[in-house]
Design a protein around this nucleic acid. Structure first.
Length: 886
RNA sequence: GCCCGGGUGGCGGAAUUGGUAGACGCGCUGGACUCAAAAUCCAGUGAUAGCAAUGUCGUGUGGGUUCGAUUCCCACCCCGGGUACCA
């Protein structure tokens, strides 16, 4: 029988679609399994071969789980808000909704051509008002929630207790107080703004030379813009704790822990000399206070101007202006020299009364701690370098007792920096009765901290790197905020009954000159009047793309619900997601943001689980060949020709170097799966995506390999499609053994997500069939069942050919029988001093003593002993024999 | 710099409670079929020496532990990803 994949695949895809084979309903009689792919952004370029890698893996697991009796939820949707559709709209005037619709259609067609068993009745789209209605609904919940630190949970704002002194100040004070507690708040935020792109950009987008990565211009500047922010740090502790119970790659957990960046230390107040003010710093090492010889405040610190003495004002002002133009990357580049300027002012070190200089330096960032530090140059490399540059005293307080003498002497004299542990010296003050000399590090920290607290100079503090989440964008193609700014200054959210607040039609999609969102052109949409005639203006920012992806996994449980985001029954049945598969690039942002939203919803009783994603698996990136010239510039793949294994530019004729790189439009090395499907079929594509290497490895795409798996499928069809290859009666022992090895290996490998070796085991089985020439009917259909999750079209076709009338997709998984795998004999490798020389077959239960005797009397043995003495013989049952000779 | 991965034939990769390195596939070589080619089927394919039997070498480099190391330990080199003066 020929392998006519075109007919087979269209036949079965049609069958599954017409019969709603993979439609999923709640079924309490079965265990549930919720298997989720990170839903794609439907870009105009269509699918590339990287997408189906994860999708195939989850599809195999879903089909495997169905065969093992699970009720499987396997949905797909579109994360369809985003910049490309908007930029296309700016260029062409085409409404982003039209572009998006087109791209979704392409993606759906491409994904459906792969025979993935999604329940398409559950398809969702983040740009659909029926979806973003509920995104807005959740935003309202965030706005109306405060975090109760005592109970360690979010609570409704109506339950917020207002201190009496605030109440006494009147309604404005009360509103401000409530606003300061909401998880979502509106405030000035310092952001990078690109005048060319007319958008805010990320720190990472601002390069060291001060140019904007995306457009290449140097039109970036720091600006204050009114922005929506979310108080994610309030959930830092919960987000940290939750990680322990998750079945996630340890690396991803570590990245999240580092991102949250919890540290313990103390806040310490330093008196400012000559001013009735304190300068508060955060330090993780309060015990090193005796070594603090100067202080630094960030250029953005609110006290900079006040601290600076008149004669230093000019220098400080210039320095602050310069720092504002630098990127964070630039400011924090270790390779660059330290810069700073003296404020002319001193502070008093509280622990020893010493006057120490206060400097302004941009290596201190406003976004972390209090924006001011105490510097201990003897024991911090940055501070040491700074102190050396500006000739500031360096006092050693940690004696590196175990260091080599020459190092120790330098450290003790303040000529070298010592950042490891040491014995305290110079760390006592009789006047205030504090002495930590001789104590351990932990005792030192505890002693100084309790002294600070007792003296009302400071307190133990926990700090996080995690910062408030900037949650608004000056763009058109995003969810509108359900917010009104009233003329009297009140900011209110819409009532649930007013949702969805749709996007207005606008003439131009370009942001305003002042950095205002395109929605500021929306005319009547903007203007609101309440029943008392008070006028208001709608919020013109839109939500970031994260918003839609923060909760889509919940909507999949009940995607068409118009009364609520999802029903309690559906959420209860399906959550949490049992397996979540996607790229590692989302290790921190998406996966942290959605955990945050989920925990808020959990606190409000809207979801029943504390964490959304029980198991996470990161698939590796699929790379493709790209070409570069000797000077390193990249050449598009359609301008390359191959001659005798070498590569040349068709434009310049220059010889090119083949490299492996991420698929990208600019390199023109994006591989579209459609070509593979047309030439080899969906089953071959699926199989190859799995066979190319381990799922979590980064690997290059080469189409040559597709031939291998295509050939495998062709041989399967050729062999099993021929009735003369099917024997009557009992199956041979040898075939049963390989069949059951295959059942076991494929089952184990699917469970462990090692799909590449599962495929090779099926190839081994097929090779065996060709070798023996005939297998029986039962062997054949059992193999079809094992093959089905990987190559479902071929498997269904053969299954039907063998007389089965019900679809294979829900047929129970075959049981493997250990009995067929047992062996009577084992072929022992006989090694001498660890080198295998020959082999002898012995019964598996042969006693060691008899094996030893047999080995020593064997004809080949003498040659390897050659008169030397036998020191010992090691016999590992059914593994190896090693003879040690001397 | 730090953190996390990784380094195995011409190529993708397999093998770890330490026990036969290179499964499976691509490519390549030879054979069968064919007028011929393609496709297919069969056989071979780590390097090196040899007609061969077989020997020697071989999992980034150098050491170590062990009867035995791709696997464990130490030092180093290279590649990929993340991150960055975090006090």
């Amino acid at each position: 029988m020929d392998y006519n994949f075109k007919d087979i695949e269209s036949k079965w895809q049609q069958h599954w679609a017409e019969n709603n084979t993979f439609k999923t309903e709640i079924d309490h009689s079965k265990p549930k399994f919720y298997c989720l792919d990170m839903f794609p952004y439907p870009s105009g370029a269509g699918l590339h071969v990287g997408h189906p890698e994860g999708y195939t893996a989850t599809d195999i697991i879903c089909r495997f789980k169905r065969a093992n009796g699970f009720n499987v939820l396997h949905p797909m949707g579109w994360d369809a808000f985003g910049l490309p559709a908007e930029q296309y709209a700016i260029q062409t005037g085409t409404h982003p909704a039209i572009t998006t619709q087109k791209n979704c259609d392409t993606f759906r067609r491409q994904i459906q051509s792969l025979g993935l068993s999604y329940d398409w009745k559950r398809e969702i789209n983040t740009t659909d008002p029926n979806y973003f209605k509920w995104t807005q609904w959740i935003f309202i919940r965030l706005f109306n929630t405060w975090f109760d630190a005592e109970q360690n949970k979010g609570r409704d704002i109506s339950e917020l207790w207002i201190p009496e002194d605030i109440q006494a100040e009147g309604s404005t004070a009360i509103q401000n107080y409530i606003g300061s507690k909401r998880l979502a708040y509106y405030d000035n935020a310092q952001v990078w703004y690109c005048r060319n792109c007319k958008t805010v950009c990320a720190n990472e987008e601002v390069l060291n030379d001060g140019s904007h990565e995306k457009c290449g211009t140097k039109e970036v500047e720091r600006r204050y813009l009114k922005q929506w922010m979310l108080r994610i740090p309030h959930y830092a502790e919960r987000l940290l704790d939750g990680l322990d119970q998750l079945d996630w790659p340890e690396g991803v957990k570590d990245m999240q822990r580092n991102w949250i960046g919890r540290s313990t230390g103390a806040e310490v107040d330093f008196k400012i000399d000559g001013l009735d003010k304190n300068l508060r710093v955060y330090t993780t090492r309060p015990d090193t206070l005796f070594g603090a010889t100067y202080m630094v405040v960030a250029p953005e610190h609110e006290l900079v101007h006040e601290i600076t003495t008149p004669d230093q004002q000019e220098a400080v002002k210039a320095y602050v202006l310069g720092a504002a133009l630098k990127s964070d990357l630039d400011r924090t580049d270790l390779a660059k020299g330290k810069s700073g300027v003296f404020t002319g002012r001193h502070a008093i070190n509280p622990i020893n009364g010493t006057k120490i200089q206060i400097w302004v330096a941009d290596y201190v960032l406003m976004g972390y701690g209090t924006g001011a530090i105490m510097a201990v140059p003897a024991h911090d490399t940055r501070d040491f370098e700074f102190a050396q540059t500006f000739d500031i005293p360096i006092i050693c307080i940690l004696d590196p007792k175990n260091a080599p003498d020459e190092v120790r002497v330098k450290v003790l004299n303040g000529e070298a920096c010592w950042t490891e542990d040491g014995a305290y010296i110079n760390s006592s003050n009789n006047e205030i009765g504090i002495d930590i000399n001789g104590l351990s590090k932990e005792e030192g920290i505890a002693t100084v901290t309790s002294w600070l607290e007792a003296s009302n100079l400071g307190k133990a503090t926990i700090n996080y790197k995690l910062r408030d989440w900037l949650f608004s964008r000056q763009r058109y193609w995003g969810e509108p905020f359900p917010v009104i700014h009233w003329e009297d200054g009140e900011v209110s959210v819409l009532d649930d009954s007013e949702l969805p607040l749709p996007l207005p039609e606008v003439e131009k999609y370009m942001p305003g000159e002042t950095g205002e969102s395109p929605l500021s052109n929306a005319g009547e949409w903007l203007i609101v009047t309440d029943k008392n005639g008070r006028k208001g203006r709608r919020e013109t920012n839109t939500m970031p793309q994260w918003a839609g992806s923060c909760w889509y996994y919940l909507r999949f449980t009940d995607p068409t619900n118009n009364e609520e985001p999802f029903s309690k029954i559906a959420e209860n049945y399906w959550m949490p997601v049992d397996l979540y598969v996607g790229g590692a690039e989302h290790a921190v942002l998406h996966l942290l943001y959605s955990r945050f939203w989920h925990k808020v919803l959990f606190d409000l009783g809207i979801v029943s689980t504390n964490e959304p994603f029980q198991k996470l698996f990161n698939q590796g990136m699929i790379l493709a060949f790209a070409y570069e010239t000797a000077s390193g510039s990249k050449v598009p793949s359609d301008q390359v020709e191959e001659r005798e294994g070498k590569y040349f530019s068709t434009v310049t004729g220059e010889e090119l170097h083949q490299i492996v790189a991420k698929m990208s439009k600019s390199l023109k090395n994006v591989v579209n799966p459609d070509d593979v499907v047309i030439n080899y079929g969906a089953d071959s594509l699926r199989l190859f995506e799995m066979f190319i290497g381990p799922l979590d490895a980064t690997k290059p795409w080469t189409e040559n390999g597709v031939k291998g798996v295509y050939n495998f499928l062709r041989r399967v069809v050729a062999f099993f499609g021929e009735t003369t290859n099917i024997s009557e009666g009992e199956e041979s022992k040898e075939t049963l053994k390989i069949l059951h090895q295959t059942i076991r290996k494929v089952s184990d490998d699917v469970r462990d997500m090692k799909f590449n070796t599962a495929v090779s085991q099926m190839m081994v089985f097929t090779n065996h069939c060709y070798k023996v020439g005939k297998v029986n009917h039962q062997t054949a259909v059992t193999f079809f069942q094992v093959l089905a999750p990987f190559a479902p079209h071929v498997a269904e076709e053969l299954w039907e050919l063998y007389g089965n009338t019900s679809v294979l997709s829900f047929h129970p998984w075959p049981v493997f029988n250990e009995g067929y795998l047992t062996e009577d004999t084992f072929e022992y490798p006989i090694s001498f001093n660890g080198k295998v020389r020959f082999k002898i077959e012995f019964p598996v239960d042969m006693p060691a003593a008899e094996i030893e005797k047999a080995v020593l009397t064997h004809a080949h043995t003498e040659k390897w002993i050659e008169g030397k003495a036998i020191a010992k013989i090691i016999i590992v049952a059914n593994k190896i024999v090693n003879v040690v000779v001397k």
